[in-house]
Nucleic acid binder design. Structure first.
Lengths: 154, 154
DNA sequence: TGTTCATCATTAGGTAACCTAACATTTAGG
DNA sequence: CCTAAATGTTAGGTTACCTAATGATGAACA
């Protein structure tokens, strides 16, 4: 009985390790999937990610960086590019003069909408070959993946 | 009845579009998860991916590129780095003198094993907080994601 | 059998997105 | 006050991708 418990515990670890490996493998390949969604004259994935955070109002640079999972200078760099493209604006934060609030311009909002729509359409095309069962399996896993990602936000 | 069918079809498209958006969002965040697995003096993700393909024997440069989802020059670049690090070797292909077969050195095999083990351990740690149900949902989706990725291989 | 066209890999040169370290500015706490 | 912490920006570097051009070999065919 003790032997059984020990075996069982070990088997759980084994399973977890295997799941980890498979998940890593899936994510590795998915990088190329994401890359496939890029288009020539459009927003880059990094720029789109940055702009999407601004949809609900101004966001400080540090918070953008934290949400993007990058360092502050990397966020600044993206923001400068967006500003030069007329898609975002930097404004002084009224509450803290050290800080900067980044806000979306109308052109920025349009750019998010269209880039988002195009990328979703391409992805939907890719997913359209899945069976109903497969779609359900994928849909069921997305909240779990989201939870994993959220737990890493620190 | 016709109305019902039309509504139903449209709802399907809607659902697919929504699934596509959610999947994109999950993958976007997962980039940071993958980045989190990187370690200081270890193989980079690109290098590890490249080496992993060689585990079962010599592979040609073009095939490595195709499997990695990158162009041939990018693969060559990685291979040269691995060669300089003593982890892989380039040999002339006996069947086709234009081609090059890339093979793993013993050191390369060790490097794959240890990098792989470390990364899997970190990932397993992250996944260990999931409920059994969540793990099953994730495990069920991985083959689907694998299928999506495989369908993109061209 | 030679010429031509395709294929395989490398080299050269450029870009995008990240990083750390050093800085200026402003806030907050003894 | 005056020092310490926090916020962004600038400067300089790295990595991993890309396209275009090149050299070398193989394959097709007149």
């Amino acid at each position: 009985m003790l032997g059984y418990l020990m075996m069982n515990r070990k088997s759980d670890e084994e399973e977890l390790r295997e799941l980890a490996g498979d998940f890593r493998e899936a994510l590795r390949h998915s990088v190329y999937l994401v890359r496939r969604l890029d288009a020539e004259g459009e927003l880059s994935a990094a720029q789109l990610s940055t702009l999407k955070m601004l949809l609900d109002g101004g966001v400080r640079v540090g918070e953008i960086a934290r949400n993007l999972g990058v360092r502050v200078p990397s966020a600044t760099e993206q923001i400068i590019k967006l500003e030069r493209a007329g898609l975002a604006r930097r404004e002084p934060d009224p509450d803290d003069s050290r800080a900067v609030r980044v806000v979306l311009t109308p052109a920025g909002r349009d750019a998010v909408d269209s880039a988002n729509a195009r990328r979703n359409a391409v992805m939907a095309g890719i997913l359209s070959s899945l069976s109903e069962q497969d779609r359900q399996a994928l849909a069921a896993a997305l909240p779990v993946i989201g939870q994993i990602n959220a737990s890493l936000q620190d």
